[in-house]
């Protein structure tokens, strides 16, 4: 069975085979260690010189990556935990993203910043953050999220073709999960595609009571909630999983949005200035919904370490179910 981590690792190997200008920089990425989450396993052995383990210097090696991108190379940076991304933000926001346009011409910057995100591992406040919301709205900085329904090789190809800096957030709880074989997710749910979005559904012929937008890291939790809504309440849910969170391609979703009984956006980011708030504003500007968009996120809090405390903060299947099972349906 192919796991998400294996798929990511294979996609990186494939990228390096195909692109002689590809570089990867990050802490502890060299063999035999192969990265804190083993995503870069085998790369330094096969591509020494182009895959480099760095000192603990996020600003430094992200800056080096910017210089490599500036001179026409394809560069992948691995930030060991997404919380450390903030150490490199000057290079990402002030240099990489601005350089695309601030010199009065479009400079291609093929830079992918990978970072493991999210809690539910008991790592505590500085190793569990979901930073997506902090990087929404940066001109020429795209945000992609790892999803079990989006093979990594295709997502890497899309990001490098865009030739702008891309943040690729990887919910670390996904690494050990299996990729679906075919279009079946489980005994009830299957998935298909709407543009570059994936859509999980139980029965496409039924009216949609709940349309839920959920990034890849939330898919499992949202599916669990959708199963309960179907079995306990006979409410039908479709889940849209975007690969690119920002800017979000809303067009393929417009017919679904207008037809759905209720629209929700779920995410693991803590409350306040969230991706969901941004998406809700986009939806409100595009279509007229029957009910306001329901937002589900983690609590407005740091992420505590003890599992029982963490569970009180981080949005889980129960949080999603509780939010969707209350309030109006059309």
């Amino acid at each position: 069975m192919n796991r998400v981590a294996d798929d990511l690792n294979a996609a990186l190997h494939k990228l390096f085979e195909a692109d002689p200008s590809a570089y990867l920089l990050g802490e502890d990425v060299a063999d035999p260690y192969g990265g804190a989450f083993k995503i870069t396993k085998g790369l330094t052995t096969r591509f020494p010189g182009r895959v480099r383990a760095t000192p603990i210097s996020e600003a430094g090696f992200t800056g080096v990556a910017c210089g490599l991108a500036l001179t026409g190379n394809t560069v992948i940076v691995e930030i060991m935990f997404a919380d450390f991304l903030f150490l490199a933000l000057d290079q990402i926001v002030n240099f990489a993203a601005k350089s695309v346009s601030m010199y009065g011409r479009r400079l291609p910057m093929r830079l992918i910043v990978r970072c493991p995100t999210g809690g539910r591992r008991g790592y505590g406040a500085t190793h569990s953050q979901s930073p997506q919301k902090h990087l929404i709205g940066v001109p020429d900085l795209a945000i992609y999220e790892l999803s079990p329904l989006h093979p990594a090789a295709a997502v890497f190809a899309e990001m490098t073709a865009a030739a702008i800096p891309c943040l690729f957030v990887e919910d670390k709880s996904l690494y050990g999960e299996r990729l679906p074989a075919g279009d079946r997710l489980d005994d009830l749910f299957s998935f298909d595609r709407l543009g570059t979005h994936a859509r999980a559904y139980a029965d496409r012929s039924l009216p949609v009571d709940h349309l839920v937008l959920a990034p890849g890291g939330m898919l499992g939790r949202t599916l669990a909630a959708a199963r309960r809504l179907l079995l306990d309440r006979e409410e039908n849910t479709q889940i849209v999983v975007p690969s690119r969170l920002y800017p979000l391609d809303l067009d393929p979703l417009l017919p679904l949005l207008t037809a759905a009984g209720r629209v929700s956006v779920v995410e693991e980011s803590t409350a306040g200035g969230t991706w969901g708030e941004h998406v809700a504003a986009r939806i409100n500007a595009a279509v007229r919904l029957r009910h306001p968009v329901t937002l589900v996120s983690s609590a407005d809090s740091i992420i505590p370490a003890a599992p029982q405390l963490e569970a009180q903060v981080v949005a889980g299947a129960d949080t999603i179910y509780a939010a969707l099972a209350t309030g109006p349906l059309a």
Binding site: A59, G60, F61, T62, G63, V64, A65, C66, G67, L68, A69, L70, T71, G72, N73, D90, Q91, N94, F95
Partner: peptide, 18 residues
């Protein structure tokens, strides 16, 4: 660029390319 210090790692990256 107008941010102090920013160019040093970037120049190091260009130096790696060179």
């Amino acid at each position: 660029t107008g941010v102090q210090g920013q160019s040093v790692p970037v120049a190091a990256g260009v130096a790696l390319h060179l």
